[in-house]
Simulated assay, not measured.
Amino acid sequence: MSEVCGNHPDCGFFSKYAQDEKAQELGNVKLYCQGPRQGACERAVYRKTFLANPPDEMMPNGALVA
């Protein structure tokens, strides 16, 4: 497994939900935040598109925490 994403210090999702098992499973934390899909993180796409942080409830796969 690779290192944690470089955006994690400013990532509201990671700060709030990295320890939440359900959010980890649904948001694929291991794949997006700590693994091979870091380059496909929808939170990073949002950040680049809107020049702002996405809502904390937006998971790396783009879905919202329910």
Rank of each mutant, 00 (worst) to 15 (best):
G62P: 00
Y17T: 02
C41F: 14
F14K: 00
V45H: 10
A66G: 11
E57Y: 06
A40K: 13
A40S: 13
V65I: 12
G6M: 03
L31M: 14
G27P: 05
G39E: 04
L64W: 13
D10G: 14
E21W: 03
Y46M: 03
M58T: 02
M59K: 05
Q34I: 05
M59V: 07
N61E: 13
L31P: 02
P36S: 15
E21D: 13
K48W: 11
G12V: 01
P60S: 15
G12C: 05
Y17Q: 04
E25T: 11
N7W: 11
N28D: 07
D10Q: 13
E25Q: 10
C5N: 07
T49F: 04
Q19P: 01
Y17M: 01
E21N: 10
L51A: 09
G62T: 06
R47T: 05
D10Y: 11
R47D: 02
A40E: 11
H8I: 09
F13Y: 11
C33N: 05
E57M: 10
P9V: 00
G62E: 04
V4N: 07
G27H: 09
E42L: 08
G35A: 11
P54V: 00
A52T: 08
Q38L: 07
D56A: 15
G6R: 01
G62S: 04
R37S: 10
V65A: 01
Q34F: 09
G6W: 01
H8V: 00
G62D: 05
M59C: 09
K30R: 12
Y46E: 00
V4L: 09
L26R: 03
E42S: 08
D56H: 06
E21I: 14
N28W: 04
K22Q: 06
A52F: 05
E57P: 04
C41R: 00
T49M: 07
Q19Y: 13
R43E: 03
Q19S: 15
V45Y: 15
Y46I: 00
R43M: 02
P60V: 03
G12L: 03
V29H: 06
H8K: 08
Y46F: 05
Y17H: 03
R47N: 00
R37T: 03
D56F: 05
G35R: 04
M58I: 06
A52S: 15
A40D: 08
M1A: 11
N28L: 14
T49A: 09
L31A: 15
K22N: 13
A44K: 12
D56V: 11
P9W: 11
K16L: 14
E25P: 02
Q24G: 12
P54F: 05
P60L: 02
R47M: 04
V29Y: 08
P36E: 14
F13E: 02
G27C: 09
F13L: 06
A52H: 15
S2A: 13
